[in-house]
Structure formats: C-alpha cells, structure tokens
Nucleic acid binder design. Structure first.
Lengths: 348, 348
DNA sequence: GAATGCAATGGAATGCCTTTCATGAAAATC
DNA sequence: GATTTTCATGAAAGGCATTCCATTGCATTC
C-alpha cells in the first residue's frame, strides 16, 4: 500500500543502530536506563539519517502533541486588523511565544474564538479534540471566561491566563496593572500635576479595573481628589475621543490624562490638537501598551510598556514545565514606564 | 491501558449511528457513495456526540495533516520585532492566512528559519518531517532560495512563494512591484516632478529589483533622466538615512523621493526635517508597504499599499485547492497607491 | 433470465510512535 | 553461593482515522 509515508521512521533508525524501536524512543525522549554507549550509537544513527519524529505519531501514541494553542478573541483581533492601527500585540505575542516554544520543541497554533457567542466552549472543545494541545494560552477577555476555565479544568489541560490578576485555576500572568498605573500617576504627580484624568478600558477586561485602581490609589496616597476624573472607555479610538472630550470639558479641566491604551491616547492627542492645546505644555498624556505608533506621534508619547512578548514567553514556559509553584501565583511580568515627550510640568 | 484518549472517536459515532467506521469517515470527508439518509444519520450522531476528528490520527492514516507551514526569516523577523518599529506584516500575514485557513479547516504554523545558514534545507527538512504540512508558504528572502524550492519539489509538497516574480516551481505570488513603483512614479510626474530619486531595497529580495525597474521605466516613458537618482538601501532605517542624504546632496537635488519601504521613508522624512526641508513643499515622499506608522507621521505619508493579508489569503487558497492553473502564473495580488499628505507639486 | 456495472457499505491492514509488560543479565544483599 | 534488586533491552499492544479490497444489493443491458 503506497501511502504517503514519512521518509525516515524510528524503525529505520533502530535498524541502522541495531537496536529495538523502544531503545530509540527512549533516547529521543531522554529517558533513563540506556547505556551511554548505546545512547551515543542511537544518536549517531539519528544524526546520520536526519531522523525527526513525527509529532502526529507521537501524539497518537498517547503522549504529548507538542502543540500549544493560543486563544484570541475573533472580534477584537479582526477589528484591530481592519483598522490597521498598529496594534502590534499580535507580533509580540507570536514572537515571544513562538521563540520560547521553539526552544523546547513545541509549536504554537493560533485560534480565533468568538467571545460573544453562546457556543464558546463548544467551539473551543472542538479545537481541543482536533489538536489535542499540551497547553492553552487564553488572552483577554477569554482569560476571565469561567465557562472556558471550567472546560479546561475538566479536561485537565494546563492553561495560562494572560492579563488576568484573579486567582483560580491555570496560571494567571499579568503585568502588574495597578502598580504600572500607579507608577504613571506618580510620575505626573512628581511633575506637579494635581488634576489627573483617567480613561478606563473596556469593563469586561479584568485589567481595566486594576489600572483604574492603581491610579486611584496613587491619587489618594498623594492626597489628591479623583472624583469625576475617571471616565469610561472601551479601548477604541472613538471611545477615547469621547472620553477625552468629557475630561477636557470639566471645569477645571485636568492638566494630565492617562489613557488605558494607545488608541485612546492617540484620540486624546488628536482632541488636544483640535482644541489647540499644547502637548505637553497645556496637557500631559500617558498611554498604556507602548505599541510602535506612540513613537511616531508629535510629540512622542510617554507610555507604560506592556511586556507582551515576555509575558507569552513566560506563559509558554509555565505550560511546558507545568511548574506548579502556587507561591508565585499570580505571576508578574512587570510593565515599565517609558518617558518620552508628552509629559511635562503643568502650566499654572 | 489507560492512556490519554480522545473522548469521542470515530467508532463511538459509528456505534451510535449503527454504521461502520468507514461510512463515518466517508461522511466526514464528504466522499460520494453515501445515501443521503445515511449521511444525515451519521451527521446527526456527529452533532450529538460533538465529535471532531483528531488531526493527528488523520495525518497518521496517510492523508492530510491540515497544517500549513509558513517559513519566515529568523533574523529579519526578530530584528524587526526588537526594533519595534511597527512592522505589522506579521499581523497581516497571520490574520490573512489564518482566517482563510480556518475557513477550510486548516491551521497555520509559523516557523523561523535562518537564511544565513548552511543548513537551511536540513532545518526545514526536519520541520517537515515533524509536522508533515500539506502546504508551505515561503516569505522573502526564502521565496527565492533554490535549495529550499528544490527540497520541496523533491518532497512534492505544494508551496507558495510570497513576493516572488520569478517563474519556477510552486506558486509565485506578488503585488506587481514594478507596476506599483511605476504608478507611484507616475503620480509624482503628474504633479510636475522631474527629478525623482529612488531608494532601492535589499538586493537579495527579488522584488527590490522590480521596484527599481518600475520606477526606471516610468521615468524613461516620461522622457526623464534617471542617472544617479537610484541609490542602494537594505530596508533598514539606517540605510534609509544614508540613501536620503546621498540623494539630497546631489546637485540639483531631487524634488521627490520614493523609498522601497516605510522604514527608509521615515528615515528620509527625518532627514528632511533635520535639513529644514518642508514636506511636501520642498520634498515629496512616497513609501512602500503602508504599515500603520505612516499614518502617524507629520505629514502622513503617501504610500504604496502592500496587500499582505490578501496575499497570504490567496496563497492559502492556492495551496489548499492546489489549483494548478499555470496560465495565471505568477499570481498577482496588486498593490495600490494611497495618497496622503507627503506629495505635492514641486516648487520651482 | 443471465451477465454486467455501479453504488453503498463493511472488513482488515496500515501509519509511527509510546506505553505496558516481560525477559535476561549484572549488581547488591545475605 | 543463592536470592533479591536493579538495570538494560526487547516484544507486543494499542491509538484513531484512512486506504485498499471485498462484498452485497440493485439497476442496466443484451
């Protein structure tokens, strides 16, 4: 039967090295109880024949699939793509995760799943059945979806929740949103700002809440009023415009605004320009995320860098090693404030 | 033997529907010779049990793996990532390809391969052995690597070459680089420019050559001199600076410059600003690629849009359908000129 | 009415690797 | 020196879906 075959299989290697399949398997998987000289002989044959095991067969025989699945929100991903607004988190995610996966012989597969869909678990369930991944990475807002975490718990598939600070099953990995927001706020306070507005992110993102909280705490700690200075947003450019307008229509208006992502910060900047407010002279702006676009605005934006690549890299490592050390939980991959030209002391 | 099993397998479905495995298989794969009522019965069971075939098993039994492999240059990818300069081609590639793959039940896997490496084929060969993809997409500069195309030909794996205009095996898919460059050039000529400089891309990219060629032909067609007006670059910001300096040091200097990518256009813009040249008053600039950053410069850049997502979408479709229609070869997914604020008639 | 062809279905083999179990040999224990 | 462990290795049994081949039952054809 002439089916499409693998060119070199484990039995070729076994034959070449003069040992049984199982011994070759043991060598491949670095198992104990193989004599060093035997191991060397097998490795030489593997090298000679350029043998690489088929992950399909490895998966079939009941062990690992060497696949890590990353679940993204379809709507968010596609709309950001369409908008072409330089949302480079896909890049960062892919590369941070991919490089680390590759180091361990794993591959990543990306999947878009609808959030606003009654069948999220069914959809995910099908993907799991098809792929049988060794680990799953959930990105917001899926990270907080109890239907999904429950499903993964039942299936006993290790998973990581990106951008989640809430405890629970799976590895929660976050950037320290509250701390980062506080840091940004303190930076502005240090410059002399007293009225600092905050544009919140989409409420279905757990981290939105924490960013607000960090700002609020920093304000309180400095003895500053925050009443009315936090306005809602949903991460979109449009919502950022509305929020910025609302803040700048206050009397007195804030002298600085922190936006929960770059899109809304860009919107704020545009509003400032439209109102002939000098940035940073009349209004200081800090954004979250630090995507590449903030370096090409005038002025360049001071931003809280979100270490997406590092976060995914960490997620992959946790999944592969499954190092369940609850003490470290949730895992912190801290963000950092990148100072650029959009922040300065306020004019009085 | 309690191994890690698939919860629902084809035999469960067969049992539930009261048919044999093979009939279920036929239904799954949409094969002929199944009575409609039988097909309906099987489909009902599949639906009821939430059955989804395991791709590992599908691959094992000798047919398709439902995987498409995308080969990227490690160096280029990582350096652009590090530089964080808004190179959104990864986004575009991922999404354009992923959405189309998903529509057909396929998945994409990304792989970084070193170009400047003696073992390119060996590395790729190993990946193929492990994954056994149904199709492979090569991105520049791998698209032009004869060692790779030879390997894939031997293995009889269908592949697409992105950004390649040269005939040969596999599907060559390009954006019509010469035509796009000509279009950009004609746009400037139409505005009244006579001295139009061109910054070429890295010479190991086939398309670099064609972009220059398009410009050259448009110049010739309009009866304009091009001698000395084309300077080398390698797609990096630094090389763009050098190239822009070289062009602007000419006497007489060009009144317009076309850069072969956005990075070099940004460099040109920076040089213009440093020299107090008004853009577009003193110097018009057109870039290639149209990544998001060109919308955040001052002024926004007129750019040739490279339809990366559409190109990958096309590549995936060709691979899946394997529609070998040599007449269409090489396939064109045309770019288009997006006019923004960096082009205007020259001052005399 | 017998022979032929084809549609519809089932049976069995097969792919490549790991896991489980068994075996023989060497090392450790008494 | 005999028995029990431990180590090193091999044999065989899957896993899940497909491919190839065989069979049944029917509609054509002569």
């Amino acid at each position: 039967m002439a089916r499409r075959n693998q060119s070199v299989t484990i039995s070729h290697v076994a034959a070449d090295a003069g040992v049984s399949l199982q011994t070759v398997s043991r060598v491949i998987n670095n198992e104990p109880n193989v004599r060093p000289e035997m191991k060397a002989r097998v490795q030489a044959s593997i090298e000679k024949l350029h043998y690489v095991p088929s992950i399909a067969a490895q998966r079939m025989s009941g062990s690992r699939s060497y696949l890590i699945l990353v679940i993204n929100d379809r709507e968010r991903t596609i709309s950001e793509w369409r908008a072409r607004r330089g949302a480079d988190w896909v890049d960062q995610m892919l590369l941070g995760g991919m490089l680390t996966s590759a180091e361990h012989g794993y591959r990543m597969i990306f999947e878009l799943v609808d959030t606003h869909n009654d069948h999220v678990e069914r959809e995910l369930s099908g993907t799991i059945a098809a792929l049988q991944p060794d680990g799953i990475i959930l990105t917001p807002p899926h990270s907080e979806n109890p239907l999904i975490t429950k499903l993964l718990d039942e299936r006993k598939i290790p998973f990581a929740r990106i951008g989640s600070l809430s405890p629970g099953s799976g590895f929660a990995i976050h950037m320290g949103d509250a701390g980062s927001a506080a840091q940004a706020t303190q930076h502005l306070i240090g410059l002399g700002h007293k009225r600092i507005g905050f544009i919140a992110g989409a409420p279905d993102y757990n981290l939105s809440h924490w960013r607000v909280e960090g700002w609020r705490q920093a304000m309180a700690q400095a003895g500053l009023q925050d009443a009315g200075l936090c306005v809602p947003g949903d991460f979109s450019y449009e919502s950022g415009r509305e929020a910025a307008l609302a803040l700048l229509n206050l009397d007195p208006a804030p002298t600085a605004i922190i936006a929960s992502n770059d899109q809304m910060a860009l919107a704020t900047l545009d509003i400032a320009h439209e109102r002939n407010l000098a940035v940073p002279g009349d209004l200081s702006i800090i954004s979250f995320d630090n995507t590449p676009v903030v370096r090409f605005t005038t002025p360049q934006l001071t931003a809280v860098d979100q270490p997406i690549a590092a976060t995914f890299s960490k997620a992959v490592e946790l999944l592969i090693h499954q190092a369940t050390s609850p003490s470290e939980h949730p895992y912190l991959v801290p963000g950092s404030l990148v100072e650029r030209a959009s922040t300065a002391p306020p004019k009085f």
